[in-house]
Amino acid sequence: MEVIAIQKSAFDGMKNELKELLEMTEKVTRKYTPIFKAEKWLDNQEVCLMMNITKRTLQTYKDKGLLPYSKLNRKNYYKLTDVQALLEAGQPYNTDGNGFTDQ
């Protein structure tokens, strides 16, 4: 077992910095928790399966502004209500077997 000795002031400083980091993390978590609890969010794969579309078609929907999304840690999320609304409105593009869209 290895023992490392540091000054009490350095240890207290590290302790305070960790405490501040924990408080910042909790603050951010409190900020975003209601958003995720109030609404069911889906990722790309879930949306593609639900709508029976390819990833490329999903990208087209995003590019055209047909399906709103939010990005968190480089991953896209979609509100279930937005996906359902697009399904109810009818998918604006149909894909043929090779993945191209007919407009």
Rank of each mutant, 00 (worst) to 15 (best):
E2G: 02
V3T: 10
A5V: 13
I6W: 08
K8Y: 15
K8D: 14
K8I: 10
S9Y: 10
A10W: 11
F11A: 14
F11C: 06
G13Q: 12
K15T: 04
N16F: 04
N16A: 15
K19M: 12
K19W: 08
K19A: 13
E20R: 15
L21I: 12
L22R: 10
E23Q: 15
E23G: 00
K27Q: 12
K27P: 00
K27L: 05
T29S: 13
K31G: 00
K31D: 05
F36R: 05
K37Y: 07
K37F: 01
A38F: 07
A38V: 01
K40M: 06
W41G: 02
N44I: 02
N44F: 04
N44S: 09
V47A: 01
C48N: 06
C48Y: 05
M50W: 11
M51V: 13
N52R: 11
R56S: 12
R56F: 13
L58M: 09
L58G: 02
Q59I: 09
D63N: 13
D63F: 07
K64D: 09
L66P: 01
L66T: 03
L66I: 06
L67W: 02
P68F: 06
Y69L: 10
Y69P: 02
L72P: 00
N73T: 03
R74S: 14
K75Q: 13
N76R: 04
N76C: 15
N76D: 13
N76T: 00
Y77D: 04
Y78W: 06
L80I: 01
L80C: 02
L80T: 08
T81H: 09
D82M: 02
D82P: 04
V83T: 04
E88A: 14
G90Y: 05
G90M: 05
Q91S: 07
P92A: 08
D96S: 10
D96G: 01
D96W: 12
G97D: 14
N98F: 11
N98D: 11
